[in-house]
């Protein structure tokens, strides 16, 4: 193992590219994605279905191979150590100990044949070389910390004895049992009822502070982003289209897609007293990507030529990154949610 560089960020992802073989040929699901995540920070990757956000998260720690995917380029450094190309054994040591996971469906991530206490204790024993008693005590402690009442008793229950919201708490206890420095949470609250989602987010925020960990949070919901993120990466059609601190992103979205997502939120329409504004068209298929800017067929600001011929590079703008050639000119007037008519736009759809 290399010694981690002192100044290295906790997680550094560079040009990460993930491909999947399909009947239509090799498709690129994650396309040169780069970002860094420092200790104790919360980074949200937001995007719609098919944007590549979940595959990005899975590929960081070698979880796409079993799904048929392949990291074909790029680098993922965790505390200075390269993870891409590491043998499964080494990754196994890191997963669960240094990097914890929570997924959308808690039921499919818990083993129905073991008590929740045993499942947590097992992880603690494996990664921390703890004895049985010590591991069990840690399991109970974690269940208590995530707010499960009578934790010592409940640790002896099987997963089916818990409600959906409680199972997600068990998952969180499991993910955090070894004090990971990084938690990867893939849509952890999407399947939950709204009031349970609110409570789970509160819990995650509290634990993030208490345990000094960084969180990479994957979501489709900008409302959740407003609640927990420090920084935000917006993905569209396998690429990063905007990367900004959370306040900047909400105050002044630089990419028309981000502005469109904001305007499409029911809360935005209610806040502004305006009608709901949708984004026309549909997300393109990975094997049928448009030329030029991948968002141009749905963009009300797209211009023939400039937006439609050459691929658009991600570039620095103010405090963030944006993949749009027109950001400056659209800013004045700002590309506010629900911005009006296309400016000599190309035909949409």
């Amino acid at each position: 193992m290399t010694t981690p560089a002192v100044t290295a960020p906790l997680l550094q992802v560079e040009d990460l590219t993930v491909q999947f073989p399909t009947p239509d040929g090799l498709i690129t699901v994650v396309d040169h994605v780069s970002f860094t995540l420092d200790a104790n920070r919360v980074l949200c990757i937001v995007g719609e279905s098919g944007s590549g956000k979940s595959v990005t998260a899975l590929s960081l720690v070698g979880l796409v191979q079993s799904r048929g995917g392949r990291v074909s380029a790029g680098s993922v450094k965790f505390r200075g150590t390269e993870l891409v190309g590491q043998p499964e054994k080494a990754l196994n040591r890191i997963r669960g100990r240094d990097i914890g996971f929570i997924f959308q469906e808690p039921m499919s991530s818990l083993n129905p044949a073991f008590t929740v206490g045993d499942q947590i204790a097992e992880v603690v024993r494996r990664h921390r070389r703890a004895g049985r008693k010590e591991a069990w005590a840690r399991a109970v402690e974690m269940l208590d910390r995530v707010g499960i009442a009578s934790a010592a008793q409940r640790a002896k229950d099987y997963p089916h004895r818990f409600s959906g919201g409680m199972r997600q708490r068990v998952m969180i206890a499991l993910a955090l049992a070894c004090d990971p420095k990084l938690l990867i949470a893939d849509e952890p609250t999407t399947a939950l009822d709204v009031t349970i989602q609110a409570r789970t987010l509160e819990l995650l925020k509290t634990l993030q502070r208490e345990q000094d960990m960084a969180v990479l949070f994957i979501t489709h919901d900008l409302g959740v982003v407003a609640d927990i993120a420090d920084d935000v990466v917006v993905m569209y059609a396998s690429q990063v289209v905007e990367h900004a601190p959370v306040r900047d992103l909400f105050r002044r979205p630089q990419h028309p897609y981000t502005a469109g997502l904001l305007a499409a939120m029911p809360q935005s329409a209610l806040e502004n007293g305006s009608p709901l504004v949708g984004i026309p068209g549909v997300v393109p298929q990975p094997h049928r990507l448009p030329s030029g800017c991948r968002f141009h067929p749905r963009c009300t600001h797209a211009q023939a030529g400039r937006c439609t011929s050459e691929p658009v590079e991600l570039r620095r703008l103010d405090g963030g990154l944006v993949r749009c050639v027109r950001s400056e000119e659209l800013r004045d007037p700002a590309p506010v949610p629900g911005a009006p008519a296309p400016i000599e736009g190309v035909a949409v759809q």
């Binding site: 709204v194 407003a226 609640d227 306040r247 909400f250 904001l262 809360q267």
Partner: peptide
């Protein structure tokens, strides 16, 4: 209360 406001502050 459970509906997040799209304004971080």
């Amino acid at each position: 209360s459970a509906i997040p406001i799209p304004d971080p502050d």
